[in-house]
């Protein structure tokens, strides 16, 4: 089986960087919530400080801060949507995928949807979730809207010229290829399955791989809503 292994949660174990007696109690609580299987946490102090990063996020912090791609496509109302303009100054989650993808795409967008619902309405309004179709021929605005509504009514769906999509993805280091229609009628689209998070400075700061748990999104979205630095 080649199930993607869950990446190590360095950030969580990095939490106990606090000093002093008061920190001990807090660290113990954090350790319990982190792994679920109490008693196993091997984290000696040396290891903890080595893994510690200066970030409150659990997502992978990017060392290269990509710009938001210059991308204008149609939204699910069929109106032109300028990604840079319409998400300017806002925390934004960006994902490339397609609606006839049975596994990774609905799982990822569903997890983000669950995490978004845990936020207050005010927090939700501070994050844009943008899904860009890698199969625009089949993902019409209407198809996209129906699909996204199952995960988040406020999610933005973009579809249009696949060449534009590929070019935009490329600037982010995300691979998108032409979809292939299989003999059985199913469609396979090759697309990088990572989610990129942009902060209000309009730069990508965080990366979420396809094996990211819903708990990680639940942890990070409130920070993104506040625009906390990564």
């Amino acid at each position: 089986m080649s199930r993607t292994t869950t990446r190590p949660r360095a950030a969580r174990h990095g939490a106990p960087r606090l000093l002093g007696a008061a920190a001990v109690g807090l660290a113990a609580v954090l350790a319990l919530t982190a792994c679920g299987s109490g008693g196993q946490a091997p984290a000696g102090p040396a290891k903890v400080s080595k893994e510690a990063k200066d970030t409150p996020y659990e997502g992978t912090v990017l060392s290269k801060h990509f710009d938001k791609p210059d991308l204008v496509l149609n939204d699910t109302d069929g109106r032109p949507y300028d990604l840079r303009k319409q998400t300017a100054g806002r925390s934004t989650l960006l994902f490339f995928g397609y609606t006839s993808c049975p596994d990774v795409c609905p799982t990822t967008m569903g997890d983000i949807g669950v995490a978004m619902q845990k936020l207050s309405p005010e927090q939700q309004q501070k994050i844009d979730v943008v899904f860009v179709s890698t199969d625009p021929q089949r993902d019409t605005p209407q198809v996209l809207r129906t699909w996204l509504d199952s995960m988040g009514k406020n999610f933005t769906g973009l579809t249009g010229d696949l060449d534009k999509v590929k070019a935009a993805a490329k600037t982010l280091g995300i691979l998108v290829e032409d979809p292939v229609v299989n003999k059985d009628g199913s469609v396979t689209s090759t697309h990088g399955a990572q989610v990129l998070a942009f902060l209000p400075d309009d730069k990508a700061h965080l990366l979420y791989l396809s094996a990211t748990s819903v708990q990680t999104y639940q942890h990070d979205l409130p920070l993104l809503a506040q625009g906390v630095q990564a």
Binding site: H191, A193, S210
Partner: peptide, 13 residues
């Protein structure tokens, strides 16, 4: 009519 076994990879199936 169709049930197939697939594996998701980092970028595709």
């Amino acid at each position: 009519s169709s049930v197939t076994m697939h594996r998701s990879t980092e970028t595709s199936m």
